[in-house]
């Protein structure tokens, strides 16, 4: 039996009837049509499906859409504002923080969480806090550099 669910994704209200077993990541990709959120391991290990829910990073493959009634969700599509990349996105551009790009949306939203809690993280803190996000091609060096670039630029922007 389908149930109604309503949530806000990237500032837009979404309202649909869904099966309770529909995972949030499939809801976002297939019902709402935002395919920037990826399905990697599908076992809550790789972090490719990471989104922001009510201000914290979560793995959308480990949520049912029906659990998210009234949630405020940001996906990678909602990070850039008025055509301007978010500083974390810009950092990945500047520091070549991606090759194939599959892990990138999740990496960027995990990075958002890191910088939200630790605006000036050490390299060790960044590496430790990225433990739930796997990259199989770039390696992590440039991803760490990208986040450091973002941290510096976000701090400068605040001044």
């Amino acid at each position: 039996m389908k149930l109604p669910v309503k949530m806000t994704i990237n500032g837009q209200t979404q309202s649909h009837e869904v099966e309770p077993r529909l995972l949030l990541v499939h809801y976002i990709r297939e019902v709402v049509g935002l395919t920037g959120t990826h399905v990697g391991c599908d076992t809550s290990q790789c972090g490719a499906c990471t989104i922001l829910m009510n201000g914290v990073a979560v793995k959308s493959c480990t949520f049912f859409a029906v659990q998210c009634e009234d949630a405020k969700i940001t996906t990678i599509e909602g990070l850039a504002k008025d055509g301007e990349l978010h500083p974390i996105q810009q950092g990945f551009w500047e520091k070549h923080g991606l090759q194939c790009g599959f892990c990138t949306p999740g990496m960027i939203l995990a990075a958002w969480q890191i910088l939200d809690r630790t605006p000036s993280p050490t390299e060790e803190q960044i590496r430790h806090q990225l433990e739930g996000n796997l990259c199989r091609c770039t390696g992590y060096h440039n991803i760490v550099k990208a986040i450091q670039w973002a941290a510096e630029n976000m701090a400068t922007a605040k001044k």
């Binding site: 809550s44 972090g47 990471t50 990073a57 979560v58 793995k59 995990a110 969480q113 433990e131 739930g132």
Partner: peptide, 9 residues
């Protein structure tokens, strides 16, 4: 436990 996103939930 797990990783930061797991610990958030």
């Amino acid at each position: 436990i797990g990783d930061p996103a797991v610990r958030n939930v």
